[in-house]
Write a protein that binds this DNA or RNA. Sequence first.
DNA 1: TTGTAGGCGTTATCAA
DNA 2: TTGATAACGCCTACAA
Lengths: 340, 340
Amino acid sequence: MVTLKSVAEELGVSLSLVSKVLNGRMGTTNVTPAKVELIKAKAKEMGYVKNSSAVALLSGKQDSIGTFLHCSGVTGSGIMENLLMGISASTYRHHKRQSLCFYGSKEEFLGLAKYASRGRMDGLLVGNITQFVSCEKLLEIQNNGLPIVTMYDRPLHPEITNVGISQVRVGEVGTKHLIEQGCRNIVNINNMDDRLEGYKLALKKAGIKYSKGNVFFVNEHFADNGYGSHVGEQAVKYFMENGVKFDGVVTQSDRETVGAINYLTKIELRVPEDVKVIGVDNSPYCEFMPIPLSSVEQNPGVQGGVATDLLMQKIDKQNVSSVLIEPTLVVRESSGGNQD
Amino acid sequence: MVTLKSVAEELGVSLSLVSKVLNGRMGTTNVTPAKVELIKAKAKEMGYVKNSSAVALLSGKQDSIGTFLHCSGVTGSGIMENLLMGISASTYRHHKRQSLCFYGSKEEFLGLAKYASRGRMDGLLVGNITQFVSCEKLLEIQNNGLPIVTMYDRPLHPEITNVGISQVRVGEVGTKHLIEQGCRNIVNINNMDDRLEGYKLALKKAGIKYSKGNVFFVNEHFADNGYGSHVGEQAVKYFMENGVKFDGVVTQSDRETVGAINYLTKIELRVPEDVKVIGVDNSPYCEFMPIPLSSVEQNPGVQGGVATDLLMQKIDKQNVSSVLIEPTLVVRESSGGNQD
DNA sequence: TTGTAGGCGTTATCAA
DNA sequence: TTGATAACGCCTACAA
């Protein structure tokens, strides 16, 4: 390994001179410019690179943040890719490195948690979905001096900074859009209280009465949390069989939207002419589906970036508080937005 | 920060004793079992975690590998997610950490390259697409003692170990499948020599004559490399307008498959009855499209895992050579596989 | 059975 | 203008 010492010996100068020259720390004095160039050239020639462990040991800073993500997520939605890109871009901006780990079970999470300390990283980002995370463990880690920022829908604990997506707004934005598109009987596929609240809010603001019969509560029909296309399909089927009249469907994922549209098409209802549909995630496939899908974009990239920025501030001992990211409406054909 | 020293002082014992106890290195001698427990308990109570910088400095091992990925990729295909999962799982198995960085330009790549050395990581994984990568730089890094494994279709250089996907096989597997499904006039959307070779190979093995007119060479029609749904659409349109008769289409992505099917549907050709279509990537949306898509899965997760395993071997000074991963056929309705 | 010393590569301070 | 030295936290060999 090429060290400062080896460069210095090669040139017959002292180690500390090489260090100063390479770091541009020569104080007010002048080293011979020729010597400076010589040293720099030699270091480059030998392929010298600073040993980050030594720097970290000395400075007490790792220049690295840890990222623990639950490995699931709605595959194909682009959420994880975008989240990672957002984190990566911010990390790069702050000249830090990112140490990424996935976990799939509580054991794996606790296994990772062992390494979460100042001796290994300057801060920790935890996110994707709350499953398997131990709030006590995170508090313990933070109390041991490692700043943490989580990326969940809502904060796990008042003392742990969180960057979430406003799920109330997710529900509201989609519903509001369909209302503006002329829908008056909007059904909702739901498995999240906040989104239901947003749905109700939008209806209320438009003076439309809320009816419980217009909501398909996923957990009453499926063991899992839904989000798959089969849920969209079943929900629409359920509404039809129960004689619920509707001209709009607010789903909770793009997959559900696909399922809903597949079923509507099968029973010869036209989208968006007869029924308008909007989903959540703005998945990449939205734009090239036979009927392009309108969707509420949750902006995971922004979430990752903001979370990283906040973590950097926390590392710098600044006070930060939890944040909610606003979702964005993306209008395409399934809600009658872009017909030509 | 909790250090060995602080634990030792708290207990009034020596630092080295704590070190020995926590590492289970007490040799043949016996420390009082009670004392061992006491030390362990105290360390846990104080939240002691080994300082990885200090260990790395001492051992010369970072216990960390770097991953440099180009940030593009076919969004929504799940390739990047799966690649990362594969790398992550293997990294975890080897008790290493993964330092992830994305780059989008040559400058960014070279910016990352500066940090690629033994003083920061034990090895380096580079992949996704070859764009902006400097082969000379990688060679320089490797010559400076950092083992590298790339994840590209083909090796950049004989001295840099590569884990690729056999693109010849990708072309062959899809074509062969359509032949087995009864197709005899198979057209091909193409922008990759290896896949074209695979396409020809499959035809040859089946005794079907290759005709250049059956291939839509993407670069003759588009400035970019294609892979989007518009390419599939245009390609099918092109074949129709040129009077090419076909009963099967081998595309080079699932997006192209969607575009092709969209166009075929528009001109009232039925998939898979009249025309069978197969794509590449086995993207998550394949299974819930109105017509579920058959696809050739490139197994990026396996690629990432194998690349990481090989890198670990390289780090251990073992000789390794480049590897090609076999693609896998996934049959669904678009090729007439799963009709019910 | 327990404690001490040296060194990993770097930087900052102080001395020459 | 340049060089020597201590310190960061840990581990290993060796001394007591």
